[in-house]
Design a binder for these strands. Structure first.
Lengths: 212, 212
DNA sequence: GTCTATACAGAGATAGAC
DNA sequence: GTCTATCTCTGTATAGAC
């Protein structure tokens, strides 16, 4: 007899793998169940719909990741408040960005998840975009708040634009670091380990966000 | 009797409109031909396949746009060479970025095209990504070359990473400026006219790319 | 409760008659 | 250049076995 969570887990793993490679629309339920070695009806039984399955895949890793990111951002902001100073932009950036890439050191399927999330905001499917935005909304609000504390002299509209530039760069880097499918665009291999990327990305972003 | 180019044109217009809204995979040939008021088989007759239609849609506006961008980049680099100095980063950035947004002042369907291109690199469909990369490759190579002239002291790998950060931000901004579908993520309206966006984006990018 | 097999309606692309 | 016929594959629903 199979345990309930076994089938669910196998479906989630296969779905994450395939969604990352073929996209949401590009992956059929038959492919997923075929790969997971379960019956076609299992997805509807366990999750209710393809859309609900996508949400489950995203939530599984994104909720814990967001908790880590929010915790780290709050810690930076709190420490600054105790010192009576504004938080440093580079500390906030590292707190926000680093945890995502550190996932790769923990689990072998992290790359698929990173690609999935890196694409989510740009997906042409409303379902995917909405599910993603809903999940990251509290984090987004926290980011706006702590960066306003760090840079009170910058008009809010300008700061929000700059944060969006950051989100764009971050998504782009997530795809380049998370997947092998983008090798075609590189004329020679770029180092994509977490430490090397942070060393280039954080100073770039700090300079941009702090610019006059 | 219909003129040959009439049917083709109507298909291209409908396809661009629908691809921008529903994505490549998410748009059916029936939707396109229905909107264009032509027969379902007309796409295969005129273009050969859905994939070839996508390429035609991209090429129609992207080839002329890339010529403008490359022309402007070369002009900045040439002027600097004549002066015997390195080209200015902010001039190169404006030459590369501004023409895309200026399309909106020329044609009413430019927003759809901008969204389509803004998404292309992030599409989960290989077809879309490959078609896009092939079309922008000469521009990409020129960009690397002129930015190396502007910043010879920065190691090539670091510079290429920074250019990719730029591409990510640019794509993100193209979606936010080109579409109304992203209104959900803004807590209050951001100004998305070309001049306002350039005024915020160019200094941000200049500071990031020139950072120590 | 959990899983399987099968049915279904609709959308996919395309070949070939006209 | 147009249209229809066709055949495959999609997501979902359900009836029943264990």
């Amino acid at each position: 007899m199979k345990r309930e969570s076994d089938t669910k887990q196998k479906i989630l793993d296969a779905a994450q793998y395939l969604f990352a490679r073929e996209g949401f629309k590009g992956t059929s339920l038959r492919e997923i169940t075929g790969m997971a070695g379960v019956n076609i009806a299992a997805i509807n039984y366990h999750f209710g719909s393809k859309e609900a399955l996508l949400k489950a895949v995203l939530e599984r890793k994104l909720i814990p990741l967001n908790e880590i990111r929010m915790e780290r951002l709050r810690r930076v902001a709190d420490a600054a408040r105790k010192r009576g100073t504004a938080p440093m932009v580079k500390d906030l950036l590292l707190a926000f960005i680093e945890p995502t890439f550190q996932l790769k050191d923990k689990s072998p399927d992290a790359s698929d998840f990173i690609v999935l999330v890196g694409r989510a905001f740009y997906d042409s499917d409303n379902t995917v975009r909405r599910a993603f935005i809903e999940l990251v909304w509290p984090l987004y609000e926290l980011i706006v708040r702590v960066f306003r504390e760090a840079l009170p002299q910058i008009p809010k509209q300008v700061l929000i634009w700059r944060l969006h530039f950051l989100f764009g760069s971050l998504s782009h880097v997530m795809l380049l670091c998370g997947s092998t499918f983008y090798a075609e665009i590189r004329e020679f291999p770029l180092a994509t380990d977490t430490k090397s990327v942070m060393k280039i990305l954080i100073p770039f972003m700090t300079a941009g966000i702090e610019s006059k």
